[in-house]
Amino acid sequence: MKLKKIFILTMAILLSVLLSGCSSAALQTNSWSGLSADTEKAYLANGSFVYALYLSNGSQAWQYPAEKADAKESFFATPVLTEDGQLLIASAGANHSLVSLNPENGTSNWVFDDAEGTWIASPLAIGEYIYAPNTDGKIYVLDSNGNFLWAKAIGGALWAQPVSDGEIIYITSLDHHLYALDPGRKEVLWDVELTGAAPGSAALDTDGNLYIGSFGSVLSAIDTQSHKILWEAPLDGWVWDAPSLDGTTLYVGDLEGSFHSIDTADGSENWAPIKPNGPITGSPLITNDLIVIGTESGTAYAIDQDGSIVWQQAIGGRLYTAPAQSGELILFSPMETDSVLVALDFDGRQVWQFTPAK
Score class of each variant (00 low, 15 high):
Ser261Met: 10
Ile330Met: 05
Phe259Asn: 02
Gly106Pro: 00
Leu319Ile: 05
Ile154Tyr: 01
Ile303Val: 15
Asp246Pro: 02
Phe148Gln: 03
Thr118Phe: 07
Ser261Glu: 03
Asp182Glu: 01
Asn46Pro: 08
Leu81Phe: 08
Glu67Trp: 06
Ala233Val: 11
Pro279Met: 09
Gln60Asp: 03
Phe354Gln: 02
Leu18Asn: 07
Leu230Gly: 02
Arg185His: 03
Ser164Lys: 06
Leu19Glu: 08
Ser33Met: 14
Gly184Ser: 11
Gln86Leu: 08
Gly156Asp: 09
Ser74Tyr: 09
Thr107Asn: 07
Ser220Gln: 15
Ala242Phe: 13
Ala314Val: 07
Ser173Trp: 00
Pro65Arg: 01
Ser297Cys: 09
Pro133Leu: 09
Thr135Gln: 12
Ser297Ile: 15
Ser24Cys: 13
Ile139Lys: 10
Asn95His: 02
Ala157Gly: 15
Asn109Leu: 06
Gly257Trp: 02
Asp38Asn: 13
Ala314Lys: 07
Cys22Gln: 12
Ala26Arg: 12
Glu232His: 12
Pro284Lys: 14
Asn209Ile: 14
Ser217Lys: 15
Leu189Phe: 11
Ile139Cys: 12
Ser268Tyr: 05
Ile286Ala: 08
Glu128Leu: 03
Gln60Gly: 06
Lys5Ala: 04
Val50Asp: 07
Trp159Phe: 06
Thr337Asn: 00
Leu245Gln: 03
Thr321Lys: 06
Asp84Asn: 07
Leu158Tyr: 08
Trp62Thr: 15
Trp240Cys: 11
Ile303Tyr: 05
Gly137Phe: 12
Ile274Cys: 04
Pro65Val: 02
Lys41Arg: 09
Pro279Asp: 12
Ile280Phe: 10
Phe354Tyr: 06
Val163Pro: 05
Thr355Asp: 00
Asp113His: 09
Gly155His: 08
Leu149Ala: 10
Ile171Gln: 07
Asp236Gln: 09
Ser214Asp: 13
Ala272Thr: 06
Phe259Asp: 00
Ser16Asn: 14
Gln305Ala: 10
Met335Tyr: 06
Gly253Ala: 13
Trp150Tyr: 09
Gly348Gln: 05
Ser326Thr: 01
Ser226Val: 09
Ala61Asn: 10
Lys5Trp: 04
Leu87Arg: 01
Trp271Tyr: 14
Leu88Cys: 03
Lys152Val: 13
Ser297Lys: 15
Lys2Cys: 01
Val141Asn: 08
Ala272Trp: 02
Tyr129Asn: 10
Ala52His: 10
Cys22Phe: 15
Pro183Ile: 02
Trp159Thr: 03
Arg318Thr: 10
Pro65Gly: 07
Ala25Ile: 05
Phe76Leu: 04
Lys358Leu: 07
His96Pro: 00
Pro243Asn: 06
Asp338Thr: 12
Gly237Ile: 05
Gly196Val: 05
Thr299Ser: 03
Ile280Glu: 08
Ser56Tyr: 13
Ile126Arg: 02
Tyr320His: 07
Gly294Phe: 09
Ala324Thr: 13
Val163Ile: 01
Ser164Arg: 04
Leu15Ile: 10
Ser261Arg: 13
Ser226Ile: 08
Tyr54His: 14
Thr118Trp: 04
